[in-house]
Structure formats: structure tokens, C-alpha cells
């Protein structure tokens, strides 16, 4: 149990850049900020205008707004959890300790899932709080829309599972940072950066 907890904690630290120098902390902070920004903007607008329901996107639309950020977050973070251990050979040290391959993968997945879930729920929590507080009658708003809360939680859970599992699964097949970016996130790169990484990797022998 302690071994699994140690790998889980190390995964959390890796994602947040703790113990990896100041540069490693910049990316998670930027991504966290990027995921929160839509919720904060929507919250500010909601507090300024009263026509919330008709004009501004709701909880369901929030995922569409931040999906690109979440995909980029997953694309950059997932490989960092699995690939360095294999690239540096540290995995061989894990597997001679009281830890199975399954324990290792589950601990890494849980670390990634926890942070992703936190990211997803934080934005929704900010949005929900702002919608409640900006309503004329906050309690009435909550009474009318309380069914949204389990929906938000369930949807967030599904989004977090999808965002976490797929990139980790793909990262398990490579140990190169550029390669997995080129391979896994090719659609994203192709859309937003004309696929240069992918083309570069295709030329790699």
C-alpha cells in the first residue's frame, strides 16, 4: 500500500512540477489558469448581466469551451508520468520492489485522474457559484437547478476518465516526448499548429 501511495504522490508531484525545478511549475500553472479562465470570465459576465440563461453558455457548454485546454493538458502531462521512467530505466527499479506493474499503472493513472478531476470540477464549481450568487434569488436558483449538480459531477467524472485514460494508454507505447506528441495529438497539432511536430516525427528513422 505504501509503495502504491509513494508512486501516486510522485505522480502528483510530477504533474504539478513539485521538486522538478521552477520551470516545471510554469506549465501546470498556465494550464490550470487556462482551464479556469473561461469559468471566471463567464462568472464575471454572469454577475454583470441578468440574461444569463439565454446568452451565456451553461455547465454543459463549459466542457466544450475548455476541452481544447484539457486535451493539451493531457497531451503534455500524460507522457511525463510514464515515459521518463521507461526512458531513464527507472521502471526496472520500481518492478523489483514490492510493486506490480498493475500497481504502478494504477497509481500513475490515479494521480493523473485526481488532478484532471480537480481541474474539471474547479471550473464547474466557480461557474456554479457565480451563477448562484448572480441570481436574483440564489436559493430559488439552487432549488430550481439542484439537479444540475449530480449531472455536473457525473459529466466531470466521465470527462476526467476519458481525458486521463486515452493519453496514458497511448503514452504507454512510446518513451519519446516528441514522438508521442506527434502521434497521439496529431489532430490537435494539425488543427492548431499545422502539424509540424507530426511531420518532423514522421521523418525520424
Amino acid at each position: 500500500m505504501r509503495a502504491r501511495k509513494a508512486v501516486f504522490t510522485d505522480g502528483i508531484k510530477t504533474i504539478l512540477g513539485v521538486g522538478h525545478g521552477s520551470l516545471a511549475k510554469v506549465l501546470p500553472v498556465l494550464l490550470f489558469g487556462a482551464a479556469m479562465t473561461p469559468a471566471v470570465i463567464m462568472a464575471i459576465i454572469a454577475s454583470m448581466f441578468e440574461v444569463i440563461g439565454d446568452v451565456l453558455p451553461g455547465h454543459a457548454d463549459y466542457y466544450q469551451v475548455v476541452s481544447i485546454v484539457l486535451i493539451i493538458f493531457a497531451a503534455l502531462v500524460a507522457p511525463e508520468l510514464l515515459c521518463p521512467d521507461r526512458r531513464n530505466g527507472v521502471i526496472s527499479l520500481y518492478l523489483v520492489r514490492p510493486l506490480t506493474t498493475t500497481d504502478y499503472v494504477i497509481a500513475r493513472w490515479l494521480a493523473f485522474f485526481s488532478i484532471t478531476l480537480l481541474l474539471v470540477y474547479s471550473g464547474q464549481a466557480v461557474l456554479l457559484a457565480s451563477l448562484i450568487l448572480s441570481a436574483d434569488e440564489p436559493l430559488d436558483y439552487l432549488k430550481d437547478n439542484w439537479k444540475d449538480i449530480p449531472r455536473i459531477l457525473a459529466a466531470g467524472l466521465l470527462v476526467a476518465i476519458f481525458i486521463t485514460t486515452l493519453p496514458l494508454a497511448i503514452s504507454a507505447f512510446t518513451n519519446r516526448r516528441a514522438h508521442r506528441c506527434g502521434g497521439r495529438d496529431w489532430p490537435v497539432h494539425h488543427l492548431f499548429s499545422d502539424g509540424r511536430n507530426f511531420n518532423r516525427m514522421r521523418r525520424r528513422p
Binding site: 521518463p84 531513464n88 527507472v90 514490492p98
Partner: peptide, 24 residues
């Protein structure tokens, strides 16, 4: 092991502390 098995970015102190924790 004979082959390389060390992370490059973290300190020896951090690495050993982590490995000791993974060992229980």
C-alpha cells in the same frame, strides 16, 4: 542494474527518499 536507471532531473536525495518510500 548494469544499465542506466537514474532520472536526470531530480536530486540524489529526492530520488533515494522516493525509492525508500516505494520500498515501504
Amino acid at each position: 542494474p548494469e544499465h542506466d536507471c537514474l532520472p536526470t532531473a531530480i536530486t540524489a536525495s529526492e530520488f533515494l527518499t522516493h525509492m525508500a518510500q516505494v520500498s515501504g
